[in-house]
Amino acid sequence: MNVDIDHVRALMVEACQQSAVPAESVDLVVDHYLLGETQGKHSHGVAKFCFESQFFSERQGSPRTVREHGALAIVDAQREIGPVSADHAVRIAANRARELGAGIVGVINTQRYGVLSPWAEHLARAGFLGIVMNTSRADSTVEGARTPFLGVNPISYAVPTTSEPLVVDMSTTKSPMGVLWEARRGAAQLPAESFVDLDGDFTVDPHLAESAMVFGGHKGFAVSLLIQIMTGSLFGFPMGPGVESTWTTGYAFIAIDPSFGGELNDFPNNNSRLVEVMEGVGTRDSQPFRIPGSRSRAHVRKVTALGKLDIPDSVYRRLMARAAGDFVSD
């Protein structure tokens, strides 16, 4: 159904108030999930807000640093709401980068957030190379295997340019787990060759799917494995089957100050020149070469101009229930 953005936002605000989200955090939480929706990443937008909101009332306090050494810091988020934990972490990473040249922050015991890109972009707008990653329960596997042993392990990175930051936001699985959850709720088929069943065979049936498939064959596996380590053992966090719940899921936020590497003034300019080169790349079909992040930004501009969101009826009903204080109905 086609719904006014302002109406969707008002329902999300009401849901936050119903679940006792601190007043100073409501806008941050709502705007975060609404951004995912306006970017066209529906599995990480309103639908994910409806899912995650059932945990909002479980927060135990504000995030706190429990260990630090040099550029590294570890934060116990005390089950804080995901976007609030992430905002806290990027600020620590930025402060350490200003002082030490790099800030590397691990976060655990937090609720989940939606898209990763806003946090990487926050760091880029402050002049840093920003990198954000997280793991999950062992929900993914590699082609030829039938046992899930990796998290879905998404990554986002962003760099400043002379205009908008260059932003990459991607899963290391062919489809995010949110696609599976929504397909189960809506009785929809899964994308082809993105999920496997108990025997390791590809399936489009959401009720037979057991694992998400890592992208890119053995090379994609190697990338996912690196992210697993950088959101796990680097900070002493659990990995693979050791990630038993939301609260044992690891997150990493990295800020790198280019001035410490000798790049004092031209980091954004150099990045802009690289973007210009990419914009001039020829394609076989004469269509513009796709720059990372361009599709999401175009989608935001489009739906913002229209002032409306196209939301499945089932998701809208769940949002209405959350705004009425029902965090159980699905």
Rank of each mutant, 00 (worst) to 15 (best):
I254H: 12
I254V: 15
I254K: 06
I254Y: 04
A255D: 01
A255R: 04
D257V: 02
D257A: 04
F260S: 06
F260G: 05
G261L: 15
G262Q: 06
E263F: 10
L264K: 14
L264Y: 12
L264R: 15
N265V: 01
N265A: 04
D266T: 11
D266K: 06
P268L: 06
S272L: 05
S272P: 04
S272C: 07
R273G: 05
L274V: 11
L274Y: 12
L274A: 10
V275C: 10
V277S: 04
E279C: 06
G280V: 01
V281W: 07
D285L: 01
D285K: 05
D285Q: 01
S286H: 13
Q287Y: 03
Q287I: 00
Q287H: 03
R290E: 14
I291F: 06
G293C: 08
A298Y: 05
H299G: 00
R301D: 11
R301S: 12
K302R: 08
K302C: 01
T304M: 10
L309Q: 02
D310C: 06
I311T: 05
P312G: 06
P312K: 07
D313S: 15
D313N: 10
D313W: 05
S314P: 01
S314W: 09
R317N: 13
R318K: 10
L319Q: 08
R322C: 00
R322N: 02
